[in-house]
């Protein structure tokens, strides 16, 4: 039930769990690392170099700073200039009631403007995930926008339900790890193709609205809206695995971006609002 809109154009559920505007700092968004024991050498290789978030006023070499949608700063995730490099920003909390929740954000994405060409195929994908756990299950709904693969435009939303492979970490038998952001196992949402406003040169960026609904009772996605499109997520089953030690009532949210070519890819998040429909 939508009850009101905020001054920045969000339409949240009645109770705001957090409303982060990156003009106030990173507000708890941080980098992601996998599990390890004794040494960082025990990290799964894919977790070793996930790039951390920073605050950006979106400087462009030709026109200067464009700021964020609602102020000066956005959270920026920047990959290395390597195909497959990932940048991830995560915020970790817990839930007080298994109820419907909704995440809204304004985002934009671009490759680095270090070449005087459009580069619209240089970003492989960007996405959003939740990492949840109740008394029985750990559930990880993943959605991403697959932009391009090896220079071929894809432009469609996908989800991932394939359960990740767990690996033992270290020697105590207490630590496992799984890498869930690889490129395998993604499935198309029905009618999931969408053309986004990429604009016409590398330094022009347009903000997009994104809304994701989630029911913490069923641990299922309930909604995905990007700009003027609302997608059917009823069949978008999440990754599900048995409950793990020490993760009770976990409610993590993360954004990421993956470079598709040896050019940095940037995902900028103007603000994020997570709201809930508590009893």
């Amino acid at each position: 039930m939508l009850t009101h809109t905020t001054s920045d154009g969000y339409a949240p559920l009645p109770v705001t769990l957090f409303h982060d505007d990156f003009d106030q700092g990173l507000q708890g968004w941080t980098g992601l690392i996998g599990n390890y024991e004794d040494s960082l050498d025990s990290l799964l290789p894919e977790y070793r170099d996930l790039r951390p978030p920073m605050l950006s006023n979106s400087p462009a070499w030709d026109t200067g700073s464009s700021g964020s949608l609602h102020g000066t700063y956005a959270m920026k995730l920047a990959t290395r200039p390597q195909a497959g490099s990932l940048a991830v920003g995560i915020k970790r909390l817990t839930y007080r009631q298994a109820c419907p929740v909704q995440l809204e954000t304004y985002f934009t994405f671009k490759p680095e403007a270090n070449e005087l060409r459009l580069g619209e195929m240089d970003t492989h994908s960007f996405g959003i995930l939740f990492d949840l756990q109740n008394a029985d299950r750990r559930v990880m709904p993943h959605l991403h926008y697959l932009n391009a693969v090896e220079g071929v435009h894809c432009g469609r939303w996908q989800f991932k339900r394939a359960p990740p492979q767990f690996h033992d970490i270290g020697h105590t038998g207490k630590t496992v790890s799984h890498f869930h952001l690889n490129t395998a196992g993604w499935e198309d949402l029905p009618d999931g193709r969408q053309l986004l406003c990429y604009n016409e040169i590398a330094t022009k960026q347009n903000w997009h609205y994104l809304r994701v609904g989630l029911d913490l009772n069923s641990m299922r996605l309930t909604a995905l809206q990007c700009n003027d499109r609302i997608f059917d997520v009823s069949g978008a089953e999440p990754m599900t695995m048995p409950a793990m030690a020490n993760l009770w009532c976990m409610l993590n949210v993360a954004f990421w971006i993956r470079a598709g070519t040896p050019r940095r890819s940037f995902l900028l998040i103007d603000s994020v609002l997570l709201s809930a429909d508590l009893d």
Binding site: G25, L26, G31, I33, L40, D41, L43, R48, D49, R51, P52, M54, L55, S56, N57, P59, S65, T72, Y73, K76, A78, R80
Partner: peptide, 27 residues
């Protein structure tokens, strides 16, 4: 005052030419 710590290289092997990744800190 706002403050922030970022880990810009983590368990990274260095040899030869070094350039850390660009970090924005206009604030």
């Amino acid at each position: 005052r706002q403050s922030h710590t970022a880990v810009i290289e983590r368990n990274t092997s260095w040899s030869g030419r070094i350039e850390t990744e660009p970090y924005e800190a206009g604030w």
